Amino acid sequence: MTAQPLQIGGGRATIGDFAPKLAALTDDVLFKEVWNRTELAARDRSLITVAVLIAGGDPDQLRFHLGRAKENGVTETELIEAITHLAFYAGWPKAMTAITVAKQLFTT
């Protein structure tokens, strides 16, 4: 596996003062330990995460992870195609919500 960018969470920066334990788990377990495992590339983890967030109807988390996916080498074209593909598996309303989030992020 080739070198990949170190994945760093933002839990402490965003919610650390309000929910310190959740922030620590986000940064220290989810990102430091899980996201940096070498068995999957960060790019693949990003695509999986984006797909699950779309399927789960989680637009707030999707907003962050679409940006993270781009940082991990997924192109906007690939993300739009993934959302289009997921319309048939996760549901049309969820895909429409996801594409609206993507459009806001990619066109600003």
Results as ranks from 00 to 15, higher is better:
M1E: 09
T2E: 08
A3G: 13
A3R: 12
L6R: 14
I8E: 06
G9A: 09
G10P: 02
G10V: 02
R12S: 12
T14K: 12
T14R: 15
I15L: 08
I15A: 03
I15C: 07
I15K: 13
D17P: 03
F18C: 04
P20T: 00
P20D: 10
P20L: 06
K21Q: 05
A23K: 12
A23I: 10
L25Y: 14
T26Q: 11
L30N: 14
F31Y: 02
K32L: 07
W35N: 00
N36Y: 10
R37T: 09
T38Q: 13
E39K: 12
L40D: 09
A41I: 09
A42H: 03
D44Y: 11
D44Q: 15
R45Y: 01
R45K: 13
L47F: 15
I48L: 05
I48S: 01
I48Q: 07
I48E: 05
T49C: 10
V50P: 09
L53V: 05
I54G: 09
A55M: 01
A55V: 05
A55D: 06
A55F: 01
G56C: 09
G56T: 09
G57R: 10
D58I: 02
D58W: 12
P59W: 13
D60Q: 14
D60G: 04
D60E: 14
D60W: 12
Q61P: 03
L62D: 04
L62S: 08
L62H: 02
L62A: 01
F64C: 07
R68F: 14
K70W: 05
N72H: 12
N72C: 05
G73Y: 12
T75V: 01
E76H: 13
T77C: 02
E78M: 05
E78K: 11
L79M: 14
E81D: 11
E81M: 06
E81Q: 10
A82E: 11
I83T: 11
I83C: 00
L86E: 00
L86D: 03
L86T: 01
Y89A: 13
Y89L: 07
A90D: 10
A90T: 04
W92N: 02
T97C: 09
T97R: 07
T97M: 15
I99N: 07
T100R: 07
V101P: 00
V101G: 04
A102R: 04
L105Y: 12
L105R: 15
T108H: 13
